[in-house]
Amino acid sequence: MSQQREEYFGKELFQKLRTGFWPLGNRIRQLSLYVGLTLLIIAAAGPKIGTEVREVKRQGVDLLVALDLSASMNAEDVKPSRLEKAKYEIDRLIEKLEGDRVGLIVFTGEAYLQSPMTLDYSALRMFLNIAETNQMPSSSTDFSAAMETAAEAFSDGEESESENQASKVLLIISDGENHGDSYDASLQALREENVSIYTLGLGTEAGTNIPLYDESGSLIGYKRNSEGQVITTQLQTDVLQDIANEGNGEYYEIRSGSSGIDAFLGRLDELQQGEFASQEYADYKNQYQWLTGIGLAFLLLGMIFPYYKSS
């Protein structure tokens, strides 16, 4: 480089051109620019160092969803099937909830608490996705079993949230066919615990047959009674309306091409809210702000720092 410079400039001319040049100032200027750009690049990556304590409060209602998994829920008068439509609408319900504790009961002739009441909606979705009619030992429907399981779940929830004043809601999703004993005593027990019972009916009054599938998912026929006749399943609105009326709730209906879950959501917003979680948690604290500020300061220094001195 020095040889090429000497070919075009004499030593004296070069010294005249560099009159007042300050090498140290030039190095400080370049170093400031490099440091500033480096800090801005690091800041853009969003570094998080240390911890930041945050307080989270959640308010809502205690909601239990009881999903009918009897064989009749495989009927396809509501597309793609009553069960799949129910699971889709429950997923929509979960998506729109904010701060409500939700649990899932699955029932036929027996009932199980598939998911205890939780604020972890992703876990609830996981339990919902694996709910199928073939997981239950019985293919009939007994509403009293679902109500008894709900009463136990609400009781367990009260022990962990003794100061919680939230409304307690049971949403039963079914086609309304009841093959069990009378549910009056179970319903009365829920009413005494101030549980409001809402029902959501799936199906059509015209009804349809109940398909049977093998393990690969292929249709192998339709469900028959003991006399060999193909069974027709229909939406039993009277049963579901009676449960809702006696349970201080409301009855909604899902038919093909329509949804009743939105009306239920609107009703939830009107109920008394309770505080389920008031907790503090530690999180990594964002540190990009001060890196950005220092980086901009170095860039400004690099642009204005003098590298020539007045003679």
Score class of each variant (00 low, 15 high):
167 S>A: 13
168 K>H: 06
168 K>Y: 13
168 K>S: 02
170 L>C: 01
171 L>W: 01
171 L>S: 04
171 L>T: 03
172 I>R: 06
173 I>C: 03
174 S>R: 04
174 S>V: 08
177 E>Y: 11
179 H>W: 08
180 G>P: 00
181 D>F: 15
182 S>G: 14
183 Y>A: 05
184 D>Q: 07
185 A>S: 11
186 S>N: 02
189 A>H: 06
189 A>Y: 02
190 L>H: 01
190 L>K: 00
193 E>K: 05
194 N>T: 08
195 V>S: 01
196 S>H: 04
197 I>V: 12
198 Y>M: 00
200 L>V: 07
201 G>S: 05
201 G>V: 09
203 G>Y: 03
205 E>P: 13
207 G>P: 08
208 T>N: 04
209 N>V: 15
211 P>H: 14
213 Y>P: 06
213 Y>V: 00
214 D>L: 07
214 D>G: 08
215 E>P: 00
215 E>I: 04
216 S>W: 03
216 S>G: 10
216 S>L: 13
217 G>P: 11
218 S>N: 12
218 S>R: 13
220 I>L: 11
220 I>G: 04
222 Y>I: 01
222 Y>K: 09
222 Y>V: 14
223 K>A: 15
223 K>H: 12
225 N>C: 01
225 N>V: 12
226 S>V: 09
226 S>N: 15
226 S>L: 09
228 G>T: 12
229 Q>S: 11
232 T>I: 12
233 T>M: 06
233 T>V: 14
233 T>E: 12
233 T>L: 09
235 L>S: 06
235 L>W: 07
235 L>I: 13
236 Q>H: 07
237 T>K: 12
238 D>E: 11
238 D>Q: 09
238 D>Y: 08
239 V>Y: 04
239 V>Q: 03
239 V>L: 15
241 Q>C: 12
242 D>Y: 11
242 D>M: 05
242 D>C: 00
243 I>V: 00
245 N>W: 01
